[in-house]
Amino acid sequence: MKFNKFLLFMIMAAFAVVLAACGEDGDSAKSEKNNASAKDVKLEGSVAIDGSGTVYPLMARLAEEYMINEQENVSVEVSRAGTSAGFKKFLVENGTDFNDASRNIKDEEAADAEKLGIEVKELKVALDGLTFVINKDNDWAAEMTPEELISIFLADSTVENWSDINPDWPNEKIKAMGPNENHGTYEFFYEKILDKQDMDSSVNLQQEYSTLVNLVSEDKNGIAFFGFGYYVNNTDKLNAVAVDFGNGAVEPALDTISEDGAYADFTRPVFTYLNVNHAKEKPQVKDFAIYVMNNINKFAGETGFAPIPETEVKENISFLEGL
């Protein structure tokens, strides 16, 4: 009798082990299925992005990759009205989902967002180096100091010809150019580089960066400023001025552009601003925002930007996933 009870106990114990194992396998299979389902969710709809022409190449590249490799039924439209013009499209009812910006949001823009009940999240996406470009035939101004560069653009400067900077340089009029007031690059230049001193009225300001590239490439005396990305994609047409900040001339490059590196004085962060309300309401907007942060450093270099620290990337992803 005791043997029979022992045998029965052993059979029941073995049966319990089998049931437990089946349960664990079932839970594991269920978990794997849920993960696969989350990964394979097919989204649809649209994502609207406008703003900075400087940030445009990076965001356009990310949008292309996202639509091809992640969510083929989501349409991501990226435009480039300029940072300030973009904020006007962003800070309205039913405005754009993202606004790319080559400067921080202004106090008055943040106040407009608050009035409209729009929660805005600043997402730092890359580092850009303000770059001064010259014509390929300009072999005299390859290296300049910040003070010399600034003197070309200031209203109260006595510099008009190259020889006013250096008597050994040509006695020919400098043709200064740059992006217009719609662009954050203009505002960064005016506020940070010129220290809010008036810009000379003779500076040729343009809406399109491609226009500036062409104008300088066709004029031996031309000089313009814009983001490093537009230079690095046009090195066949332009040369970049190496800047001597006091320790020898430094060329803008991916390994010198940083907030504490050799080109730090002309380095700036660039951003995209997210309408958090839209991200909460439209799954494709949140999904694209997370995709951007997960892949931003992968595509930064190939579009002319230096990467941001991974700690900042992870902080932004954590915020977005928590929405």
Rank of each mutant, 00 (worst) to 15 (best):
D156Q: 14
K5M: 14
G184Q: 04
G53P: 02
T145N: 10
D164A: 13
S52Y: 10
I68N: 12
R80L: 11
A110M: 12
D100I: 03
S151K: 10
K5Y: 14
I152G: 03
P269H: 13
T267M: 06
P170S: 09
E310C: 05
M144I: 03
V216C: 06
Q71R: 10
V18E: 12
T185R: 03
W140L: 09
F245G: 02
L212E: 02
K286W: 09
L212P: 00
I165W: 09
I290E: 14
N275Y: 09
T272S: 08
K2V: 12
I68H: 11
K314C: 02
Y230C: 00
N233D: 07
E315N: 11
D25L: 14
H278E: 14
T311Q: 11
L123G: 06
T96C: 04
N171T: 15
V213R: 03
V74F: 13
A253P: 02
E172S: 15
I118K: 11
E108G: 02
S163F: 13
A38D: 11
E44Y: 03
S217G: 04
E93F: 00
L205I: 06
L130V: 12
G117V: 06
G246E: 07
A142L: 14
E77T: 14
V313P: 01
S163A: 15
C22L: 15
K5L: 15
E109R: 00
E24I: 15
A306N: 05
L215M: 11
